[in-house]
Nucleic acid binder design. Structure first.
Length: 324
DNA sequence: CCATGTTTAAGTGCAA
DNA sequence: TTGCACTTAAACATGG
């Protein structure tokens, strides 16, 4: 096997789908949401391959953002300069790559319109992000320093900060560390063959260590994530696009008090309990080896719903599950 | 005008 | 073989 020389592999396509790349980018940001341009930047910063043919892959990436329910759009606050919305991961998408492959998911995450009892409505997502942000911000304020890389608190709705170990499955640290995790190749047991051209890193630790070392197609390090994706919304998240007027496609609809993702639910969203349990569970503290018991599992309806149907969200309540 | 989003469609490859 | 996930291309809409 040829040694992965810098230029030998660095410009090769990384073994990640656009979805996983995007998820990584989003997950790497303190707010767990990024504008499109930052997602581009994240990817280009770390994967030299994507510094070329930008038109092509960026178009694909945008397609993925719109097309996949696992990504939700969160409007900018009115006072936030810039174009476009922020993109975040649907709180219930859990670990779409639990099979270990970042090239191909086992199932596509889809938000379904469901009867009742939607475990997680898109609105929750925004609410979550809001809360998370606040948590982090308060943590920040408390510590008086730069935000520690602690997505943990994010999903820990209890508000009690986790020991700081938790990382969302999409956290780049996890993604990369996971591949790496099993010495004997265990990790790969369930894994899609990663192109031989992409030897696994030899020494990634869960965090802190440089992603760069031995990782030909990746530049940067976990540590630089913060600097790469500076906190763009420094304060009060409560205002997230509150007006939300552009959100309503339908005139008569009631707008939630909190920012809601645009696509998934034009529909009347029943008032949410402050913080439904289901969501946190999913993203919560599950160690990188995720529990299959995630809400993803829910009732997979033998999807009579075509993608397009799903997209045309005119449902009442939404239900997120991994459909098949 | 350009960046951002949405959609449709076709082609590829993997896995059941 | 078939279905699904993914990639790519492209048309079109919208908003700064």
């Amino acid at each position: 096997m040829p040694r992965p020389g810098r230029n030998t592999y660095s410009d090769q396509k990384p073994p990640y789908s656009y979805i996983s790349l995007t998820a990584m980018a989003i997950q790497s940001s303190p707010e767990k949401m990024l504008p499109l341009s930052e997602i581009y930047k994240f990817i280009m910063d770390r994967f030299p391959y994507y510094r070329e043919n930008t038109q092509r892959w960026q178009n694909s990436l945008r397609h993925n953002l719109s097309f996949n329910d696992c990504f939700i759009k969160i409007p900018r606050r009115p006072d936030q300069p810039g174009k476009g919305s922020f993109w975040a991961l649907h709180p219930s998408c859990g670990d779409m790559f639990e099979n270990g492959s970042f090239l191909r998911r086992r199932k596509r995450f889809k938000v379904l319109k469901s009867d009742h009892l939607a475990p997680s409505k898109p609105a929750d997502a925004a609410q979550y992000l809001q809360q998370q942000a606040k948590l982090r911000l308060s943590a920040l304020a408390a510590s008086g320093t730069h935000l520690p890389q602690m997505p943990a608190a994010a999903y820990n709705l209890g508000g009690v900060a986790q020991p700081s170990g938790f990382k969302h499955p999409f956290a780049i640290e996890n993604i990369i560390a996971r591949e790496y995790k099993m010495p004997g190749g265990l990790a790969f047991s369930a894994m899609q063959p990663v192109p031989a051209a992409y030897p696994l890193p030899n020494q990634l630790t869960t965090m802190g260590s440089s992603l760069g070392t031995g990782w030909p197609h990746v530049y940067g390090s976990a540590g630089m994530i913060d600097s790469a994706t500076p906190i763009s919304m420094a304060s009060d998240y409560s205002a997230y696009g509150v007006p939300l007027k552009p959100l309503c496609h339908a005139a008569g609809q009631t707008l939630p008090a909190i920012p809601v993702p645009i696509k998934p639910t034009p529909a009347a969203v029943p008032a949410l309990p402050a913080l439904p349990a289901p969501i946190p569970t999913l993203l919560s503290n599950s160690p990188p080896s995720l529990s299959p018991t995630s809400s993803q599992t829910a009732t997979s309806q033998s999807s009579p719903a075509t993608p397009s149907e799903t997209l045309t969200s005119r449902a009442s309540a939404l239900h997120s599950v991994a459909v098949h």
